Simulated scan of single mutants.
Amino acid sequence: MKFNRRELMRIAVAAATSALSAIPVHAQENIAKADAVAAMLPKAIQDAGALRIAVPDVGKPLAYKEGSTLKGMDADLAKAVAKVLGLKAEISLIPFSAALTGLQANKFDISFGEFYVTAERLKVADFVTIWQDYSSFLVVKTNGYAPVKLDDICGHTVGAMAGSAELETLKTGATKCSGTAPTVSAFPSVSNAILALNSGRIEGVLINRGGAQEAIHLDAGLDASGEIGGGPTAVAAARNENSEKILAALKGAFDHLIESGEYKNILEKNDTAYGAAKKAEIYTQNSTPPKYGF
């Protein structure tokens, strides 16, 4: 069965209500300021009393709107980190492609978004890894196309979200085709890509594993195929005079949440525990990026 955009949104609300009703919800109001961690913050942010946080609009289970409320793993972690640091969370929901440019323009202090840490991205921002992910192809079951490796895109029409690592992965894969090159399309959101998939404009969408899982929950006609890439994903931080201290504070805050068990609670609530990290790691301009299976 195929759904239009409005129907997908209606079902998403219903599915979220049903799925989360069986999961113990640990109120984030119980997360207290960790004085030793908060003391690591640069004075400018301590004095401001707020952390400007970008949360890219990537959909369930990471970031999505339910009515006027922002939900998902990223939103929950953003609020939790701010509480540990004793700051107000000033959260802005933005397109994924605007995250790094927003940091460079000093619109935000940090940005969520499950960034893969690459040499190109390290030219413009610093990162703290907090989760792990890999990508799969989202396909229509009845179409008979089920790519399991990057070579399988050759001669086909595929797409991904603009600005995502998945889009860059598809572009890289396209250059390695010995025969007919694929047609690779960029979409402003995962929802737009799925609509294109269901309308037959493309044959597959390369998407993070959690996003694929959620899409299949909403549409039984879809399926996920293959495990592409994968590795640690990160929160991005603006590179400026405050970088060293804010990176240390962010790592301290995430490690505190991991050690206290609140990190696990947040991931279980959002069905993202498959990507749990054991500790946070800092990556700066001079760091060697993690190795990914691209």
Rank of each mutant, 00 (worst) to 15 (best):
G72H: 09
I282E: 01
A89L: 04
T183Y: 08
A12I: 12
A82Q: 09
T272D: 04
K123R: 15
D271R: 13
L206T: 00
V140A: 09
A174E: 02
I110L: 12
S189K: 04
F127G: 13
S21I: 09
T284W: 04
G173E: 11
F108P: 04
K33V: 14
R201Q: 15
A196M: 10
E90F: 05
A165W: 15
F112P: 01
T69D: 13
V128F: 02
P232W: 08
I246S: 01
A234C: 07
A80Y: 05
Q104F: 03
Q213P: 03
E244Q: 00
L93F: 14
S178P: 02
I282F: 03
T69K: 15
D219L: 06
A80Q: 09
G261E: 00
A105Q: 14
L62G: 06
E268Y: 08
A212T: 07
T157H: 11
F3M: 14
E259A: 12
I282P: 00
T69I: 14
A54Q: 02
A32G: 07
A215N: 02
A238F: 02
A36Y: 06
A186M: 01
G211I: 04
R6Q: 15
V158E: 07
I11M: 13
E241M: 07
A99L: 06
N286I: 05
S260Q: 05
G252R: 04
I110F: 08
L197E: 06
Q104W: 08
K149Q: 11
V205F: 06
N143M: 11
A98Y: 08
T17P: 01
V235N: 05
E66I: 13
T172S: 15
E214K: 11
K176E: 14
P182G: 13
I216H: 08
A98N: 07
E227R: 15
S260Y: 13
H26T: 12
I153K: 02
L218S: 04
K79T: 10
G211C: 07
M1D: 04
L267Y: 07
Q213F: 12
D133W: 09
N143E: 04
S136A: 14
L170R: 00
I258K: 09
E168H: 12
A212P: 01
L62F: 14
G231T: 09
S135I: 05
A186N: 00
F187R: 02
V158P: 00
E166C: 11
I31A: 03
L62S: 11
A277E: 09
E214R: 10
L77M: 14
L195P: 09
T180D: 11
E262M: 10
K83I: 05
D126W: 04
A234M: 02
D255V: 05
V235W: 05
V124D: 02
Y292I: 13
G226W: 03
A162W: 05
Y283D: 03
